[in-house]
Design a protein around this nucleic acid. Structure first.
Lengths: 161, 161
DNA sequence: GCTTGACCTTTCCACGATGGTAGGGCCCAA
DNA sequence: TTGGGCCCTACCATCGTGGAAAGGTCAAGC
């Protein structure tokens, strides 16, 4: 697990005091970062976010630093990184001795994954587009799309009755 | 539910007799279609495949027709159709009075979904590729990738300590 | 016939990331 | 004090697939 899982040792406070001191509750953190309260709790439970401090009445409170981390996670999700990859990126982010080569490697790995998935989906699209172009799209039942699905050979039997 | 959910009324048999009569057990059906036994049972449970007939000893048996249907599903999955879409396609396939227009509409809907997802992933890839190109990838910690994730503004503070 | 190993059966759990809901407690303003 | 809105936990659902456990069946070799 990343170092983010370790507990902090902020003093426990009343919610009003915490707000005075510049802390946010989970709803405010969600609003400020675009990460739902639900997901903030989830990220804590899987160790992506540090265990949040609580007020006396058990409300989670978040510092500016936490907000910053949540924005980082949000941005990384938007770029399609997985939780595992984000965990690694967060580790590097918080690592003073990191080398940019490590970060670049992670990013390029993800680029390669994206390329892979893009290529797969383009192949699907091209096949379907080709079939659809050859389909009359009228009232008659004859359809090259169904013929393809029904056994790409073409010389095969016609089902449907 | 599609008409595929209705039971058939094939006579119950011993397994050996069923094989003689040209039926397959689930393992053979899986082998012949590339759909795992697990997924064949799953497709039955969600009504995508008809409820399979059984031997006396409760083994599922499959006809050539079933094999054909499984291949249809497999091919449609390969083209990225969802279960819901496949249910509709199977319905049309088995419908004598279908119009090819209905099939074409489904296919083009799916093409549009694919285009959408492709565009999203291309945007991710382009952004990341750009960031990675600007990253030295050496031993130093400075990294435009982390800077982007850490608050795309650029003029923002640097975390990491 | 009996043993053995491969197969079949069902049921439950897991993934990844997110949303929802239910039942309870807390906070703040009127 | 009361009410509405927020927070807490704990659970279930999604979607498609894989895995494992615990038990029954089949087929081949002895």
């Amino acid at each position: 697990m990343a170092s983010t899982t370790k507990r902090r040792s902020r003093p426990t406070l009343e919610l009003a005091d915490a707000r005075h001191a510049g802390y946010f509750n989970i709803g405010q953190a969600a609003e400020a970062t675009g990460v739902s309260a639900k997901m903030i709790r989830h990220y804590e439970s899987i160790g992506l976010m540090p265990v949040a401090d609580r007020t006396f009445s058990n409300y989670r409170i978040y510092s500016d630093n936490d907000i910053h981390t949540l924005r980082f996670i949000k941005r990384a999700r938007t770029l399609g990184f997985s939780m595992k990859q984000i965990e690694a990126l967060l580790g590097l982010w918080q690592e003073r001795r990191r080398s940019s080569a490590q970060v670049k490697k992670l990013a390029l790995q993800h680029v390669a994954e994206l390329e892979q998935r893009i290529a797969e989906m383009q192949a699907m699209r091209d096949t379907l587009q080709g079939l659809a172009t050859r389909c009359h799209g009228d009232d008659r039942p004859d359809c090259p799309i169904l013929e393809d699905l029904s056994g790409a050979g073409g010389s095969c039997c016609a089902k449907g009755h």
